[in-house]
Simulated assay, not measured.
Amino acid sequence: MKTNLKKWTENYGLFVLVVVLLFSIWEWVVRKGWIPSFILPSPSAIWNSLLDNRQLLLGVHLPVTLEEVLIGFALSVIGGILLGVGMHFWRPLEKVLYPFLVISQTIPLIAISPIFIMWFGYSIWSKIAVTILTAFFPIVVSTYDGLKSGGDEYRELLLTMGANRWDLFKKIQVPLGLPIFLSGLKMSVVYCVVGATVGEWLGASEGLGYFSRRMSGSLQADAVFAAVFLLSLMGIVLFLFISLLEKQLLKNRVR
């Protein structure tokens, strides 16, 4: 227990200290009146707003945004893996689709979101569509690049032993590509939060993005920051979950 605490302190102690220092300076500057509270509310005001609106934020808007994020992420993972593996096995598919994948990332979300609203209405699927557009690319690319990475010596060895393409895929390409794929997964799950928030900003009646837009319209900066805090916390928790999954999978892989 003490060893784990010492290790955690060595890894994150300085970060925690800097965060506490920054929040203290932030609180002090706002309380001094050097920055108007309607522009940058103090951390204590944000916390109080979070407590005052906790039933609305935690009971109504957070579950909606989380549902959009999780559904969008799940569909992105399934589709991204299938497409990445398909591009790996069939080169013409890679030549045709890879440019479209790159082009999809050049389209601003703020421009494409109204189109999704026209297609899907103000239902949850318009927000999920934006989320998928945001999160799909890292999964496809990390899957495809991971399967192409290294393993030439192992590949030649298995070929001399009579291995077929499926054997190479299962025993070399998947294990060696797993770290790259998991890195893409961590990026994607954070992008999902961004995509869901953008979708809610442009057209929704529930969700943290909708709540922050409504509060910004009435100049309630503390409530806006409270919603942003929950969105950030959601992204951090999801990122840590994928990181723990990565650690477990790679530990088992080494063994």
Rank of each mutant, 00 (worst) to 15 (best):
K32T: 00
V85S: 07
T160V: 13
T197L: 01
A196K: 10
V30W: 08
S37T: 12
I110T: 13
G146Y: 07
M87N: 06
I39T: 11
I71W: 07
W8E: 12
G80Q: 06
P92S: 07
V174N: 11
H61K: 06
G72F: 08
D145F: 04
G33Y: 08
I180N: 00
T143H: 06
L233D: 01
L109Y: 09
P41A: 10
D152T: 13
Y191T: 02
S126Q: 02
F136L: 13
P63K: 05
Q220H: 12
Y154N: 08
E200R: 07
I117N: 07
G80P: 03
L5E: 12
R91L: 12
S44N: 05
I172W: 04
I180T: 15
M161W: 09
M1I: 14
S149T: 05
M234K: 03
I78V: 15
R165K: 13
R213Q: 13
F239G: 09
L57G: 00
D152Q: 13
V237C: 12
M234S: 11
G151S: 13
T9E: 12
V193S: 02
R54W: 04
G33Q: 12
G151A: 14
V30C: 07
S113M: 06
V60W: 10
L244Q: 10
M215N: 12
I242G: 00
G72H: 02
I107D: 00
E68L: 10
L93H: 02
S243H: 06
I242C: 06
N48H: 07
C192R: 01
G146Q: 02
L70S: 03
V20P: 03
T197Q: 11
L250G: 10
Q220G: 00
L159Q: 15
F169R: 08
P99Y: 08
G199N: 07
M87F: 04
M215F: 06
G150R: 09
M87C: 10
E10F: 14
L202H: 09
I180C: 08
E68Q: 05
V30Q: 05
A111S: 14
K2M: 11
S76K: 05
E200V: 05
G235H: 06
E10L: 15
R165A: 01
L66Q: 05
T143L: 07
I172F: 10
W8M: 15
V16G: 03
